[in-house]
Design a protein around this nucleic acid. Structure first.
Lengths: 359, 359
DNA sequence: TTGAAAGCGCTAACAA
DNA sequence: TTGTTAGCGCTTTCAA
């Protein structure tokens, strides 16, 4: 019924509780014989140390807390958009922490709450996690970082934009991904490739634009002003952007939008104006949201390595999880640890057939 | 730095730690003055009790563990299908537990592991959660239920099929939902409505079929053998089903598939045979998976109240969370607590225009 | 290489 | 109505 304690194990092994503790913690100076007996007893009793007792006694906690933004999450949930990001993040973290017998706790934080600092400090005091995984927008919330620093709790920040020296930073190479997508479109024969930006306030959006420009330039292609439309990451801004391109007779053969929502807007806007995708216009997005796969045509896009970023974060938060290569690698020079993205080639972008250049 | 303890609060309030404890636990026999002073001190110090110390000292734990199936979850993740189910479940549970200052821990369990019982018992021993939320297929795993019973830990089962007297059972009314969808199609003027089943082994599938038959019968409509095709919840079985209907000249005007994957198969199969949806054939699904909304046409379906089921489960696991009505309600007579589903009317099913009956 | 004892921050008996 | 004291199951000094 009531489960075994360290005393039961010690008794069964004919040893002291300290010896059991030593064995379980992998401390040095334990005879093989003792270790053997202890492990046998542990096995026989199905014993597992209480995380509460361990935490209380001062051992490092075995809990990793994922702090996700309440407002954003609830908003996604309400709107029926789902929380693909959240579940991918969790899966990535879970797969890693369980290898080290750690546990994942999910906490909602109100990034806009005036009592944020207090609430968070209290939360951290009551949980005392081994480490914390921060997602946007909390990755860049100074109040959150301060609370964590004060509590002396390690943290990993997913997709941070500022102060990259604080905590462990994990991200994807936005610039390079955008470069790759642009290069892919160029390989497909496109020359007149337009770009729809996100809000300038987002570093990610700025880097994607950089990647696009760099790829174009390196392939000897121009990116005149009218190839770049200002968007804001919304579907509507995609619709507006393509309408603008058409109205101004920019004559593009491909449009690369800096996120999927916008790309979906481009898709629909193009269709509304009688352009077929991908025959008349190729469209590419960025993010690989759930809707991308189901769009018609399925959207060619960049898959954000959300799970991999979380896994990377977890490996850096829990001792013993890093691969040798990772452990040996020098800390990223003033930047983030990078997780590999994926170019999802689907149906919305195709090779340019040498007949037309519309839009 | 290091956070306040109950001693600090007691000192600041000029009281004993027991008094602080009493106030915090809302015990009776505390003078208003004392309560006042204690709360002020708590407030001033930003104090929050350590969950470890509380748990160790024998207080009920404040952790709710969600046990999700490892294999299923990883498989969903790998296949890129995502885990909408998981994130909806978590959101529902999170929103509730945080109201009572509880925490959500997510654990993966290998339902097929031979060491399941041991592993789970060890896990429960080390965490000692206040309660556990079980998702399919673990909701019906006797080994899991036994381990929980032995550990004396309360649990709620989402969508269980057997032994409904064990633990708190939470589900949706599958039969009634299928009835409603069928009735909806009938209201739209359809008379020749086909049905594609899921695997007979699933109780949910059987109940959906019952609901369909009941609605048809109550509206004086026949459901001859050839109106019902055997499926297995896969996309492919939907394709096969519609092909069968067409080949056998069943002349249906609507097809109700017992899950979304199957319905999507029907959609595609119909299109491949030159049937337009919804003009020539109305199609309805069941589940509201992420793909349903993005399908072309968007799938009319039943939305499983995953978040609501999890919320209901959480409310029954954490004391003080039940609404008065819920607390007063008699336990469901040998069945499950029911969460309200939703009929998502989208574009794949339309009113029957009186010209044709195809397929 | 091993063990005895103290204490982590709480709650729960038991007194006062 | 309040306070004192003894644990909960571990890890951590400190000795042996």
């Amino acid at each position: 019924m009531s489960s075994a304690t360290i005393y039961d194990v010690a008794a069964a092994a004919g040893a002291s509780i300290k010896s059991v503790s030593r064995v379980l913690n992998g401390e040095a100076n334990v005879s093989a014989a003792l270790r053997e007996r202890v492990m046998a007893a542990v096995e026989a009793l199905g014993y597992r140390r209480s995380i509460s007792a361990r935490a209380l006694a001062g051992a490092a906690s075995s809990i990793i807390a994922a702090l996700v933004d309440a407002e954003l999450t609830i908003e996604h949930w309400r709107s029926g958009r789902g929380n693909d990001y959240l579940s991918r993040l969790e899966m990535g973290a879970l797969m890693e922490v369980r290898r080290a017998d750690h546990h994942l706790m999910v906490e909602l934080v109100d990034h806009a709450s005036p009592g944020l600092k207090r609430d968070l400090s209290a939360l951290l005091a009551s949980i005392r996690p081994r480490g914390v995984i921060l997602t946007p927008p909390n990755s860049d919330n100074a109040v959150v970082l301060d609370a964590l620093d004060e509590a002396g709790i390690a943290y990993a920040r997913i997709g941070p934009e500022r102060d990259l020296h604080r905590g462990v930073c994990v991200a994807m190479d936005e610039r390079r991904a955008a470069y790759d997508m642009t290069a892919y479109l160029i390989e497909q024969g496109h020359r007149r490739i337009g770009f729809v930006t996100g809000p300038a306030a987002y570093a990610a959006s700025r880097r994607r634009l950089e990647g696009y420009r760099a790829a174009m330039a390196e392939h000897g292609l121009e990116t005149p002003e009218d190839f770049v439309a200002q968007g804001d990451f919304t579907f509507q801004s995609g619709v507006a952007a393509i309408a603008g391109f058409i109205d101004r007779r920019t004559r593009l053969t491909a449009v690369f939008a800096s996120n999927d929502d916008t790309a979906l807007g481009v898709l629909q806007g193009a269709a509304a104006r009688g352009l077929r995708t991908p025959q008349d216009l190729s469209v590419a997005g960025f993010d690989d949201t759930p809707g991308a796969m189901f769009a018609t045509p399925a959207l060619t896009t960049i898959r954000q390595p959300v799970a991999e970023m979380a896994a990377l974060a977890a490996r850096h938060l829990v001792p013993g999880l890093l691969t040798e290569a990772e452990a040996a690698a020098a800390p990223p020079s003033g930047g983030c640890l990078l997780a590999p993205y994926e170019l999802m080639v689907r149906d919305s972008a195709a090779a340019l057939t040498p007949r037309r250049s519309r839009s």
